[in-house]
Design a binder for these strands. Structure first.
Lengths: 150, 150
DNA sequence: TCTATTTAAGAGTAATTTGTCTTAAATATA
DNA sequence: TATATTTAAGACAAATTACTCTTAAATAGA
């Protein structure tokens, strides 16, 4: 799997938040129900995003989470790195520690350029772009497809 | 992680076999020692490759494993698919089952083209190509770098 | 101030991946 | 044929990832 499940869940949730940005907090309960993700599990994942200030949270009634800046300023890469770390973008295809230009493995050159394309793709795409696309074309972000962008 | 550890180990072992192709069997013991991989674990992994006829094995003294055809005819993709399956090349970036042109997620188009590049890279590279490169440039296929292509 | 609501934090469980160990089956060679 | 060597197979253990549950802390609103 390219992205961990946690990361995928984080992306789905932040896409939803980006589609809906009005300054209000959205409760994690609501997110978890709309996205069909376990509430407690999603809570833990989103805590990682608030920990790196990609999101803000507020406890209590009317509380919840929201993006800490415009979804246009948050890229898919920001979310991926916050949850899965840099591994995907730095790791050797043969799993060798310290694989790089100085001490490469046979696959290094090829793999490094593929990795860069992945990075470029994630880095050049904002949450808002994807959320707008999903909204406009009514695309799925859940398995059952019951989710609607409203 | 893009590739599982099993897959990485399988790649390292088959690269070594491709570098050394003379029709003889190489014992898994020797592979595991040269590559610094647990013998029993490597045995299990290589069984998956013999199961799909990418390798042949022979029990008993002088036994071991060898590629079932020239390493020029075996691509990295063959090994990856045999061990990790097609997931990497078919899976949705958001983990949605059945994500495709008819029922895409917002990331689908972008991701599908990146996935195709990964496939293209793995498919167009043979074990022998990588083994020769490693041999010629004396590149690592183990963490400690003690391995030598001889 | 009290209460209901909501996130935070941490312990605990389940599933998957990774790795180990033992025994069985095959085979080359003496 | 007997023996040593090697893969095959399956049970088992450890580590990681995925998920659940309980309790604490914060806060809006009555």
């Amino acid at each position: 799997m390219l992205l961990s499940k946690s990361c995928v869940y984080g992306l789905r949730a932040t896409l939803l938040l980006a589609s809906n940005q009005n300054g209000n907090y959205t409760s994690i309960k609501e997110l978890s129900e709309k996205l069909d993700i376990s509430f407690h599990f999603l809570t833990k994942i989103l805590q990682q995003l608030t920990a790196v200030d990609l999101m803000e949270s507020l406890k209590g009634p009317k509380g919840g989470v929201r993006l800490s800046k415009s979804g246009e300023e948050i890229t898919l890469l920001d979310i991926v790195i916050a949850i899965d770390g840099e591994d995907l973008l730095t790791e050797c295809a043969l799993g060798l520690p310290g694989c790089g230009i100085e001490k490469p493995c046979p696959l290094h050159d090829m793999w490094a350029s593929t990795r860069d394309e992945i990075r470029e793709m994630l880095e050049s795409t904002s949450l808002t772009q994807m959320a707008n696309k999903g909204k406009k074309m009514n695309l799925r972000i859940t398995a059952d497809g019951k989710f609607t962008w409203e």
